[in-house]
Design a binder for these strands. Structure first.
Lengths: 123, 123
DNA sequence: GTACGGCTTGACACCGGCGTCAAGGCAAGG
DNA sequence: CCTTGCCTTGACGCCGGTGTCAAGCCGTAC
């Protein structure tokens, strides 16, 4: 499979696939002409990457998941390293949720206060 | 008040104050030597900026709040423009909270599943 | 021949709020 | 006179994932 085909199947761009490869996530053999040749399994890998990116992971965080998939597991998140990253990310998300909730509360307070005390003048 | 003093009082840097000025948020007169000279009221403005930045606002979003303060109101969020931005930001935060909650759910599911089905092999 | 569509690598652009370095002016104190 | 420490403007770096353009190779079809 050539890079354009894989990009099409994965719903992304050749540029993006080269970027993933550059960061050690996607693998490709090379044709005699230098073209990247992808195994069918790489589609699965790319899907895993896209899914985790959408969940807020960085490429570095994703690496263990890809390695886990390559090791023959039927899911990328069952390996110890992946689990460690998962736990860390969940903690980060929880922390961020707390901060966002606090921010939301402050904004609501300001809004309520503004509605009670309308402004004296606009400019 | 010179830029270094204001920066000190506001807990930030001269670079940052120049940046705010460049974006139309902070104002300064100029001494004969070209040094920025700040009114005491600017400290309040800078605090408002820092506070809103910490809540996830961008500098452009903050401008109405600063203008509101300058108009003589005792809080930056009581003017109509500020209220509009507040409403928009609250909606954004709510939306993001929803997404984050969904992500958190997915991650928890993956973690639980990983703990039930330990990996066959790591590499 | 040449035109086209795939591919290759390399490199710049973006966003936003700064850090940081460069090169220089100004005031004060030794 | 020289140092020190403020200030000035201008400009590049960062982060991260991707778009996009350049310049060029490869293969096929006309």
């Amino acid at each position: 499979m050539l890079i354009g085909e894989l990009a099409e199947l994965a719903g992304t761009s050749p540029r993006t696939l080269r970027y993933y490869e550059e960061h050690g996530l996607v693998r490709a053999r090379r044709d005699a002409n230098g073209y990247r040749q992808y195994d069918d399994g790489e589609l699965r890998v790319v899907h895993e990457i896209r899914s985790l990116l959408a969940s807020g992971f960085g490429l570095d965080d994703i690496r263990p998941f890809v390695e886990c998939l390559r090791a023959g597991n039927n899911a990328g998140h069952v390996c110890p390293d992946s689990v460690a990253v998962l736990r860390r990310k969940i903690a980060e998300v929880d922390d961020y949720l707390g901060q966002l909730t606090e921010v939301r509360r402050r904004l609501h307070d300001q809004l309520d206060q503004a509605l009670e005390n309308p402004c004296r003048r606009t400019l």
